[in-house]
Every structure is written in structure tokens, then in C-alpha cells.
Design a protein around this nucleic acid. Structure first.
Lengths: 140, 140
DNA sequence: CCTACATCCTCTAGCGACTAGAGGTGCAAG
DNA sequence: CTTGCACCTCTAGTCGCTAGAGGATGTAGG
């Protein structure tokens, strides 16, 4: 048994110490066994779970979705249709977000390029913000 | 004087009533005059300011940035270099976010396409989440 | 004038996903 | 034995709102 401390788990998983404790608190990560001095003591499988959570968070999945995905991982005989649905929903979200950010980028570029670095009353940045009609794209 | 109620201001600006009060509370919007019965009473210039704030929020500027942008708008004789800097910083943020979301999208697509709609133990969604090494792109 | 109802008021608490800090204990090295 | 870091629990703060309680005001109809 090569059990490790929470600090070591944080180093190996890339999840910060308080965040690991937080995940335990909300039930994403099982409460580990404790040392004599009441310190958390993790096993390798906990590191796998932490990596899973971290990766899912980086992909922007919400904690509730991760809860579902983890329970699917824990019961591998089930149908994966809910995992599929969660991932698909996230994909659609991401696609929408990209579209909206591209429109935003275009508008910000107009603002920045139009700035003659002079005084505020000729500044395109302020002007565009003040008058939505000056937007290039109907992103909102 | 065509003063309006907070509800009318909300309708015309597209900013919700509690949000308008919130903006007043944090000092983005000046406290308006009040009616005899202590109800807020807004002027057309307040609507302009609300539109400015709303537009800036839609572009993803933080409240603190908007505070700076508004104070620049209030003092139009100043140099617009800080407005320029704020907009440029936001543009860089947006560009980074787009890049990261595109990598994410690619990864989610692999997950979703690889799902054979069978059981979890053959599910690519769960598999990729569990093993970061299976990612197509080094987005994180 | 009275009543009904929408809108307004203030104040507090909640959201998600952490993060920061206070105040105290455990543990390994010098 | 003491120094100093890592650990413990607990509470409160972050951001930008949003929801709700509990009460006052404004307006339209009878």
C-alpha cells in the first residue's frame, strides 16, 4: 500500500489541496481513510478519480454532470447513453460559445483598431460601447 | 422632464430591475432622484449609461473595467490609452478563450463520435475523461 | 372613497466552484 | 526540543447577479 498525503495527491493530480477537500465535502471524492493524527491518506484509485474530475472540469463540465459521469464510471455495465447525452449537450454549449466569442472578437477588433490613441472624445472604444448601433455584428 | 420609473427604465434598457438597483449599489449608476413616495425616478441620461453598461457586460468586460470605461466617458478630454488597454486586454482574453474552446470542441467531438451507444465499459466519453493521454490536443 | 392589483421599496440569502484566512494540531529534521 | 512546514476544521469572501420576504406606493375600476 503506497498511501499518500493530501499535499502529495495535490501535486500528482494538479488539483489544489483546498479543492480536494472541497470535492470530498460535496461528495465527488470519497472520504479517504485517516492517519493516526487524523490526516487524510489517499490511495492510487483516488488519484485516478481526481484526474477524471480535473479533466472533466477542464472540459467545462459542471459538477453535477461530473457526478453523473463518475457514477457511470463506477457502474460500467450500464448503457452509456446518458454519458453520451451529457457530452453532446456540452459540445453544443461549446459551439454556441465559440460562435458568440467570434462575434465579440470582431467587435473588439473594430474598437481597438479604430482607436487613434488620442483623446476619449474621439475614441472608438467608448463610442461603440455607448452606441450599440455601431456594432458590426448582431451578436446580442 | 420625462422622468421614468425603474420598471420603464428596465424595459427600455433591457437591464432587469434588480440589476439596475444592484448597479446603483455598487456605484456604476448614480443614485437617481426619488418621487414623493421614495420611488426611483430616472432621466434619459441614465438610460444611456445603462445601455453602455449593458453593452460592455455583453462584451464580457468586468464591472471594474466598466467602472474605468465609464469614468473615461465622463471625462472626455483625457487620453484614451486606458480604454484602449482595457479593450486590448479583453481582446486577448477572448482570443485565448476561443483557442481553448476550439481545442475542447475537437476533444468533445472525438468523445461523442467514438461513443458506440453501447455499455459504459466501451464508452469513449468515459474513457477519454479517465485518461487524459487519450486527448487529441494538448489544450491544458 | 374603497378595493384590487401591479409595481415599487429594503433587506437578506443563495447560486457555482472554488479561494482565503483564522486558529489550532501533527510531524520530521536539525 | 524547537523550528517550521503541512495538515486540520470552520467561516467568510469572491463575482455578478437572482430570488424571496415583508411591506409601501401608485393606479384603475366600481
Amino acid at each position: 500500500m503506497k498511501k499518500i498525503t493530501i499535499g502529495e495527491a495535490a501535486r500528482q493530480s494538479g488539483v489544489k489541496v483546498p479543492t480536494i477537500r472541497y470535492y470530498e465535502g460535496i461528495g465527488l471524492l470519497p472520504a479517504p481513510s485517516r492517519s493516526e493524527g487524523n490526516q487524510r491518506s489517499y490511495e492510487p484509485s483516488d488519484l485516478d478519480r481526481l484526474a477524471f474530475i480535473r479533466h472533466a472540469r477542464e472540459l467545462g463540465f459542471e459538477v453535477e454532470s461530473i457526478r453523473t459521469l463518475l457514477s457511470l464510471q463506477d457502474n460500467p455495465g450500464q448503457s452509456c447513453s446518458s454519458a453520451d447525452a451529457i457530452a453532446k449537450a456540452r459540445l453544443i454549449e461549446v459551439e454556441q460559445r465559440i460562435r458568440s466569442l467570434l462575434a465579440l472578437k470582431a467587435e473588439l477588433e473594430v474598437m481597438v483598431e479604430g482607436c487613434g490613441h488620442g483623446r476619449v472624445d474621439q475614441c472608438r472604444v467608448i463610442e461603440v460601447l455607448a452606441d450599440h448601433g455601431k456594432c458590426m455584428h448582431p451578436h446580442h
